[in-house]
C-alpha cells in the first residue's frame, strides 16, 4: 500500500536520509525505531508530503507522492497523520476538530459528519468532551481527539509521528491502547515511536533506523528480542536500561 524506494533527503549540506526503502502492506503495523536525528520523523513527513525528498520514489496505492502536485490533496484524504504535539485547532471544540476535514475537504453533510464525529470521540473514550476546547484537555485527551480527527477522514492508513513523546508518562497508556485497538481492527499503521512495549505487542514489523539508513528490520519479536546488528543491540540496551 505504501512503497518507499531508495529515498534520499538533505537539509542543506546535511544528508538526513541516505537511501531508505521499505513497503507497508494493507493491514500491517510497522514501527520505526531509532535514536533522535536518525531521520524517522522525516521519512514519515515525506510519506505525507509535508517534506520534499531529493531522490527516490514514494507511492501510496500506486499514486506518486509529490508535495508540489495537486494529487497530494487526494492522497492526504486517504492517508492521515497524527503528530507528536497533537496540533489540534485551538479555536475549535473537540467535535469541530474532528468534523473539519470531512465537512470542509470531503464535503460531507454536516449532520452526518457530526454523527460520525460523536461515534469516533466515543470510540477514543471522549464522549463527554465533545464541546471541550483543546486548551482544557490533557495531552492524552488531545492526542485521542487528534486520532479521532485522523479517523474521521476514513483513511486507508495512518502515520503516527511519536504520538506519545510529548505526553506525561501516566497519559501514555490511554493513547497506546486506542492505537492498539485500531491495529486490532486491521488499520494500516506506520508508527515512529520510542515505546518498545507497544512495538513488541502491536507491530508486525520493526525497522531500526540510524543515521538515515535502515540498519536492521524484522518481525517485532525477532528484532526486539534478538537484534543482530551491534548498533541495534546497543540502542535497545540503552532504551531499556537508560542508567547503565
Amino acid at each position: 500500500m505504501i512503497s518507499v524506494e531508495d529515498i534520499r533527503k538533505s537539509f542543506g549540506p546535511l544528508e538526513v536520509i541516505k537511501g531508505v526503502s521499505f513497503n507497508v502492506s494493507q493491514g500491517e503495523v510497522v514501527c520505526i525505531i531509532g535514536p533522535s536525528g536518525s531521520g524517522k520523523s522525516t521519512i514519515l513527513r515525506c510519506i505525507n508530503g509535508l517534506e520534499t525528498y531529493n531522490s527516490g520514489a514514494i507511492t501510496f496505492d500506486g499514486i506518486k507522492i509529490d508535495p508540489g502536485d495537486k494529487s497530494i490533496v487526494n492522497v492526504r484524504t486517504q492517508l492521515s497523520m497524527v503528530f507528536q504535539r497533537f496540533n489540534l485547532f485551538p479555536h475549535r471544540t473537540a467535535l469541530e476538530n474532528v468534523i473539519e476535514g470531512p465537512v470542509q475537504v470531503k464535503r460531507e453533510k454536516k449532520a452526518d459528519a457530526m454523527e460520525r464525529g460523536r461515534e469516533l470521540l466515543d470510540k477514543v473514550g471522549l464522549s463527554g468532551k465533545l464541546d471541550a476546547y483543546p486548551g482544557s484537555l490533557s495531552g492524552g485527551q488531545q492526542q485521542r481527539v487528534a486520532i479521532a480527527r485522523a479517523l474521521a477522514m476514513r483513511p486507508k492508513a495512518i502515520l503516527f509521528d511519536e504520538p506519545t513523546s510529548a505526553l506525561d508518562p501516566e497519559l501514555v497508556g490511554e493513547v497506546l491502547s486506542v492505537m492498539r485497538d485500531l491495529a486490532n481492527e486491521g488499520m494500516t499503521m506506520v508508527v515512529v515511536t520510542h515505546e518498545m512495549g507497544f512495538a513488541r505487542e502491536v507491530a508486525d514489523r520493526v525497522l531500526f533506523l540510524e543515521s538515515g539508513v535502515i540498519m536492521e528490520e524484522g518481525s517485532a519479536s525477532e528484532l526486539l528480542r534478538n537484534p543482530k546488528h551491534e548498533r541495534t543491540k546497543d540502542f535497545l540496551h540503552r532504551v531499556i536500561n537508560p542508567l547503565e
Binding site: 508530503g49 492526504r76 473539519e100 475537504v105
Partner: peptide
C-alpha cells in the same frame, strides 16, 4: 504545527487561511 495538521487532512492553502 496546526498548518501541517490542516495540510495532513487534505486542506488547501486557501482553506487553511480561511478556516485555521
Amino acid at each position: 504545527g496546526q498548518i501541517e495538521a490542516a495540510h495532513s487532512i487534505g486542506m488547501t492553502d486557501g482553506l487553511i487561511m480561511r478556516r485555521v
